[in-house]
Design a protein around this nucleic acid. Structure first.
Lengths: 337, 337
DNA sequence: TTTGTAGATGTTAGCGCTAACATCCCCCAT
DNA sequence: ATGGGGGATGTTAGCGCTAACATCTACAAA
């Protein structure tokens, strides 16, 4: 490594004390214009860059954040990350991105390492940790905002999507379209948002005087393959099913494919709904009826909340709930059926 | 902020010197089993976490990397990021993710701030900087690996996709299928990979004894909307076009939609090809013929290369070229036409 | 003239760790 | 006994910066 230019080098070069250099790089006003320019010239000459590490040690501020997601290659999370990073950049913060790859142990380990890196804030998306572990892992973390997850203790902020509402909207839409034999591809069992969606599903079923039929709620991986598999199984076991509500759009696309492969017409024989409204949803055949979740906005909101916590503007934890929006496309029949 | 537990606290608690604690947390062998346990107990008692910052200052190693992409929400880049982060995690490194949002100034600023954060390595994807600025910005950076970009000076490593080959494979396939009136939706003009693709396109055209027809090469935004717009314009101006080669799959999907909207049958009237083979490509109607770029692998390769540089295993810069692979689907007619 | 005062600059002491060297103690070979 | 050696532990001096206080100069007010 080529030896780093330090503040002392600049000071010597400019013929001042290192403290004056420090003042210049930090824009302090107590420096005369003449020396300011002299120091600046020395900085440029030497190509000096202050060491963020040394600065952090001295100030106890790292201007660094952690964002933890199960998987950035999932468009749901990459949009969130984009939103977070956008606001963070404007606030002059850098973001550590960590993927847990759906592995709780890795999540723990990542949280641990972010702690050592001394991030000033943490945004944790869709944690797969149970309440106890999560609470414990967060104990030593400073400002934290959860996305799509809440803790029973009301002391940590969260940005949530009203999945229950979303599921209800979808079920109501499906029922209005005349379908009575619904099934639910429920997604991963460790996900809290699954519980919320399932609850909305059940309640809407009950409201429509439809029986619960728990056998038609099936866990699956939150992917195209997961949806394909679960849909195939479900449709084979219960041929009378005429509507598949899916955990998210990826699962729905899988369901679409499985249904088509089994010779079902879409949406005449089987209606399919997704969730999230990722780009894909509008582009498959038939285009998916889904529930739009403003993901970028979710990231922005979470970051703004985190920002407040970091600055101590609002020490009390907040809960923001974002309503999703029904988007009707051709994968469900029109209500006039 | 609750006062941080330091190594001195642990030392006092365990009745040893701070140096012994340091030895324990670093797994040095020169500590007797008895004190090791005593120190470990103190660490657990106090919930001590070593300060990465202080450690970095003392050791001059940050165990931190920077990854710069135009936009993580683009699946092309999010897959790369996933690959990079996967390998980085295994090597116990954390990754700063930065989006440039296609803005060269922001790219510069981000590179600058990563320098201050003292990342040990940098992976820069599809830089939008011109050669001079890029070279300058990289001067002070330690290990660097470029993705989808190379510099005339051969002193910085890069992982590249053989776009020229890919474009040639696609053109050959199209020509074999009997099409003669090709057009090219060429993507953003600032992109270096666009140049490579265009070159492959031209060469393959020449090899097939087809005229170059530069008017049928059209720039467009690398998105569905960009493809839609450019395809509409091109198909209206030149109704005889019977094949659209597209910059990437997103553009191709837009082209698909535009062609359909103009009443063209796919692929009978117009064949369409994409590039990259993102998940979407297989899921649209008709499924896209495309060229698969192993994105995750690209990230993994880049990270491995970076790793070698960081460890000084190979100080000489390397150029890795990854060949893409033709994937034939229904958006192009079979050669037997 | 003396003193006060404010602005510009310098000095010192950390921030929390590790590298490098110093010390101590116990046991063994002589 | 006695010196030597090696394993266990301690001491000291930074890493590159900033906070806090100290100093110095010049000039205005008394």
């Amino acid at each position: 490594m080529p030896k780093r230019v330090t503040i002392a080098d600049v000071a010597a070069h400019a013929g001042v004390s290192h403290m004056t250099v420090s003042r210049v790089i930090n824009g302090a006003n107590a420096v005369s214009e003449g020396t300011r320019q002299r120091v600046q010239a020395a900085i440029d000459d030497l190509g000096y860059r202050p060491s963020g590490i040394a600065r952090s040690l001295a100030t106890q501020r790292t201007r660094t954040l952690g964002v933890v997601v199960p998987d950035v290659s999932n468009p749901f999370f990459s949009d969130i990350v984009l939103g977070v990073e956008h606001v963070a950049y404007a606030a002059n913060y850098n973001v550590f991105l960590c993927n847990t790859e759906e592995d709780p142990e890795r999540e723990l380990s990542v949280l641990h390492s972010l702690e050592e890196k001394q991030v000033e804030g943490l945004i944790l998306c869709s944690s797969r940790l149970d309440d106890k572990d999560l609470d414990l892992a967060l104990r030593n973390h400073p400002a934290t905002v959860l996305i799509n997850r809440r803790l029973p203790q009301p002391d940590v902020s969260a940005v949530l999507v009203d999945y229950e509402l979303g599921a209800r909207l979808l079920v109501e839409h499906i029922v209005q379209a005349g379908r009575r034999n619904l099934a639910f591809l429920a997604g991963p069992s460790a996900s809290q948002s699954r519980v919320w969606r399932e609850s909305g599903y059940s309640k809407a079923l009950a409201a429509a005087d439809l029986p619960p039929r728990p056998a038609r709620v099936r866990s699956c991986a939150p992917s195209v393959a997961g949806g394909q598999e679960a849909a195939r199984a479900l449709l084979s076991e219960y041929p009378e099913i005429d509507a598949l509500l899916c955990y998210n759009d990826l699962v729905a696309v899988g369901a679409l494919q499985a249904a088509a492969a089994l010779g079902r017409r879409l949406p005449d024989d089987v209606a399919v709904t997704g969730f999230d409204d990722i780009a894909l949803a509008a582009l498959v055949t038939p285009p998916l009826t889904t529930c739009r979740v403003p993901r970028y906005e979710l990231g922005v909101q979470a970051m703004k909340l985190l920002w407040q916590h970091i600055n101590g503007d609002s020490s009390s934890p907040a809960l923001i709930t974002i309503p999703p929006e029904l988007v009707i496309r051709a994968s469900t029949p029109s209500p006039a059926t």
